[in-house]
Design a binder for these strands. Structure first.
Length: 825
RNA sequence: GCCGGAGUGGUGGAACUGGUAGACGCGCUGGACUCAAAAUCCAGUGGGGCUUGCCCCGUGGGGGUUCGAUUCCCCCCUCCGGCACCA
């Protein structure tokens, strides 16, 4: 053993040993409890920096810990390898996306290995591999058969910079999730996955995902946006053939409707507008709305624009005729695209009614002292015919019954969630396996022809339109049904499709007869612990849940949910901003490794903050982590000869009080570290107690008499630190362990257990309070009775000073911990 | 606007279920070693007061419950995140 700690040398050594011994390779073993641990796989964008390392370091602690606890741990890694940056690199630098991607993967794989992350590299996958996406194409065809994948023309989100369509989840505040360009609208044909068919189930299961953070669940629930209400028809006065269906969450307020509104693009508008003058006006209004929706959508307090139509509707509940408008505040994409307006109990309707001088009827008695405008609270129904005197909830039920009895409407549930648009007008993605035949129309590719391989020989210009469309050999093909001339679909799939099932492929990554080998998936799934950034709260995490349910219904897997528990780790911040290449504030992993080693980088990131919080990068913090490891190294070096001769196995009953305390501390540390890792992932406090134990150990070893009498115990303490620290800093601990003369390596060592007996103290420190303020501390025998503790507390000279001349009112005791003497007055 | 989350020393952060606030680390101050520096080691480090041993104050602000509140309840302030005309 060398006196100095040379991290690079030992890190290389142990990484080589782990690789040669295939230490982290796993196979299904029904005799062992399984643990599937997964970090969100990265997009191979170039290089990993210390901002990325955090999630892998967190994952690696759990992986190594769980192995030591005897679990069969699946801990795989792969690459979310399709996506736009690869194409952009091709455009900017003339490198083929495939080449660029594969080179990045090679570089990043090497980086992860050098950080010592314990993956089963034999399971590595890349989603751009045809052997990967072929199964996705097969599932696409299955979904097509079941109506879960469909094609339609619709108004979609278009990113002008990425030159492609975006799903609703991929638009954040009107901007593209990846490039932050302002998103525009476009009418376009495209493919959709019917995620709305699973809206109810996705929502229901939210409450059963008990291992997920509350805020992610809340975000998913909000995104799905369930609202319960009623749908019914309003007749058009003088047009017996026409009726307008409206959706409301407040069926109890039907007697308060004073007008109705259609979305400007509602299809019935054309039927209701008579005369060329009217039509022109409608067209003008529509154009205005369309224009403003781009810029002014986010503007606050923007007035609600509307146009009154000549037609009048009839309120079926009281026969009253009401005016009809088209207005920008009603959206075609939600509900029926038409509403009954109740200004008395809806603020939006109130605002509109005020600007257009419309009647306001109150149908709920206001809470005492109410001074607001529209009232949305609870109360008793008024001005509401047969509903008068009922509560809001009762009235809702009564109205729905009334509608059903007369065949005019029904109870109805609407969702905010919309179907997932998966068409991308780009090259570097998985081809959608369908063709358009001149005779047969749209036809899926034959299963035996899968995969539909993405051709390599394309011209990537970035000038609008997919390069696939100008690749004749790809586009023109024989119809799988009639053999006639057909044209291949040139849209590729959203890359979120690949990431919706990669966790399944890891179970049997080389399986050739299907997406996933049933036995392997049944053994490993679900993922026991998933770790990733909060930015995917409704993107990837919602898609993956949906896709898993589809695969379950197709009979491929038996789980209902893919991820049993989720840990959303915080960002790494430097200089007030998230560490990222574009911000120019990255700390390169190799710089850290060269200066301090991978273990130091890991230790710092694990120690500086609990995983769910943002972590502030600190060069001095890194120094601190390095200092600790260096001290541990020096300590082992200094005492290793003495300790080698000791026998920690037999660590005999320590005889001095200090050694007894040290022994307790060792067991307390095992207990605390175990609990901190296991229950709440608080690695920072786990590391802190290990530092404490080390400080005590250093102090004990410095004392000649203690070192002599307690060699066994000190050895046992050092071994405990090394073993407990192994999941955090695997290289240095492996090396120190070897140098203590151990023949097993730490990959084979079990997590230590603690004994409750050893935790037992002989004397207890009891805090004495007078009127809730700490006034003294006494030590008592562990078996002291509460009476004797009280007596001793009252006898304490410091405490007595506060009692002089006062009368004791009562004494409260927390057993073994605290006595509070409450005085009179 | 609605829904979440968070405010603790100079600093990153501790404090289990209401029971010694500030563990551990960083920084800082003083000391040892050294010709000197770095590294290392030792001691101190929430604020204020003085009789140097204690006392008072202190977890964003104000109130409450309690023998006792960083922890529970109410109101307010600030910051962060999500959604945002979804009927």
């Amino acid at each position: 053993m060398e006196e100095r700690y040379y991290p690079q040398k030992i890190e290389e050594k142990w990484q080589r040993i782990w690789e040669e011994k295939k230490s982290f390779r796993v196979t299904e073993n029904p005799n062992l409890p399984k643990y599937y641990l997964l970090e969100m796989f990265p997009y191979p964008s170039g290089r990993i920096h210390m901002g990325h390392v955090r999630v892998y370091a967190i994952g690696d602690v759990l992986a190594r810990y769980k192995r030591m606890k005897g679990y069969n741990v699946l801990h795989p890694m792969g690459w979310d390898a399709f996506g736009l940056p690869a194409e952009n690199a091709a455009i900017e630098r003339g490198i083929h996306p495939a080449k660029w991607t594969m080179e990045n993967i090679a570089y990043m794989r090497d980086q992860l290995k050098k950080m010592g992350i314990s993956y089963d590299w034999d399971r590595e996958i890349a989603t751009c591999d045809p052997e990967y996406y072929r199964w996705e194409q097969l599932i696409f065809i299955r979904m097509l058969e079941r109506g879960l994948a469909y094609r339609k023309r619709s108004t979609v989100n278009w990113c002008p910079s990425c030159q492609t369509v975006l799903a609703n989840e991929q638009v954040e505040g009107g901007r593209c999730w990846r490039c932050e360009s302002e998103v525009t609208k476009r009418d376009i044909d495209g493919w959709f996955f019917k995620i709305t068919a699973y809206a109810e189930e996705l929502l229901d299961w939210c409450d059963r995902l008990t291992g997920w953070p509350e805020r992610v669940i809340t975000m998913q629930k909000n995104w799905i946006g369930r609202s319960e209400g009623a749908e019914f028809d309003l007749a058009v006065a003088g047009h017996p053939d026409l009726k307008i269906r409206v959706f409301t969450t407040r069926p109890d307020t039907v007697f308060g409707m004073t007008y109705a509104v259609l979305a400007p693009e509602h299809p019935l508008v054309d039927d209701l507008v008579t005369g060329p003058g009217g039509r022109a006006e409608v067209e003008r209004f529509r154009a205005e709305v369309l224009k403003q929706s781009e810029q002014e959508r986010i503007a606050e307090d923007r007035p609600k624009r509307g146009l009154r139509l000549s037609a009048r509707l009839v309120n079926p509940f009281n026969g009253v005729e009401i005016p009809l408008f088209i207005a920008d505040y009603v959206l075609m994409i939600y509900g029926t695209g038409a509403i009954m307006a109740v200004p008395g109990e809806d603020q939006r309707d109130w605002d509109f009614a005020k600007t257009h001088n419309l009647d306001i009827i109150k149908t709920v008695s206001r809470r005492l002292g109410w001074t607001g405008e529209a009232y949305t609270g609870d109360g008793i129904k008024i001005n509401s015919g047969f509903l008068d005197g009922l509560t809001v909830a009762e009235a809702k039920r009564r109205v729905i019954d009334w509608l059903v009895e007369r065949g005019l409407g029904e109870g109805k549930i609407n969702y905010r969630l919309r179907d997932w648009g998966i068409s991308r007008q780009r090259y570097w993605g998985a081809p959608i396996p369908v063709l358009y035949c001149e005779a047969c129309g749209m036809v899926p590719e034959k299963e035996e022809n899968l995969p539909v391989v993405l051709p390599r020989d394309v011209q990537i210009s970035g000038k609008g339109g997919s390069p696939l469309a100008s690749h004749p050999a790809f586009v023109s093909a024989a119809c799988p049904r009639c053999g006639g001339r057909a044209r291949r679909e040139t849209d590729t799939m959203d890359t979120f499709v690949e990431s919706s099932w990669y966790f399944l492929r890891y179970c049997s990554p080389r399986y050739e007869d299907g997406m996933v080998e049933r036995g392997a998936a049944d053994y490993w799934m679900p993922v026991d612990q998933y770790i990733g950034g909060i930015e995917h709260a409704v993107l990837h995490l919602l898609y993956a849940r949906f896709y898993t349910k589809v695969l379950r219904d197709l009979g491929l897997v038996k789980v209902d949910e893919p991820f049993k528990a989720l840990l959303s780790q915080g960002m790494v911040i430097k200089g007030g901003a998230k560490m990222s290449k574009s911000k120019g504030n990255v700390v390169a992993d190799d710089v850290i490794r060269e200066a301090y080693g991978a273990d130091t980088g890991r230790l710092f990131e694990l120690f500086a903050a609990p995983p769910e919080k943002d972590l502030e990068w600190s060069d001095q913090g890194v120094e601190g982590a390095y200092r600790f490891l260096t001290r541990l190294w020096r300590f082992t070096f200094q005492y290793r000869e003495a300790l080698r001769r000791a026998n920690s196995e037999l660590a005999r009953e320590a005889d001095t009080p200090q050694l007894k305390e040290l022994r307790r501390l060792i067991h307390r540390t095992i207990k605390k570290v175990t609990h901190d890792i296991e229950g709440r992932f608080h690695f920072n406090t786990a590391i802190a107690v290990l530092m404490e134990l080390f400080n005590s150990l250093s102090l004990a070893a410095k004392d000649e008499s203690q070192l002599e009498q307690g060699t066994d115990l000190i050895k046992s303490g050092l071994e405990t630190i090394i073993v407990l620290l192994y999941p955090f800093v695997p290289h240095i601990t492996s090396e120190l362990w070897e140098n203590l003369g151990q023949d097993k390596t730490l990959t084979e060592v079990r997590w230590p257990s603690y004994s409750e007996d050893a935790l037992e103290e002989e004397r207890l420190l009891v805090v004495v309070q007078v009127d809730g303020k700490v006034r003294g501390r006494i030590t008592v025998p562990a078996d002291a009775s509460s009476e004797s503790i009280e007596a001793e507390a009252l006898a304490d000279p410091k405490v007595r000073g506060f009692l002089a001349g006062k009368e004791i009112h009562r004494v409260i005791q927390v057993p073994r911990r605290l006595v509070n003497i409450v005085l009179e007055g």
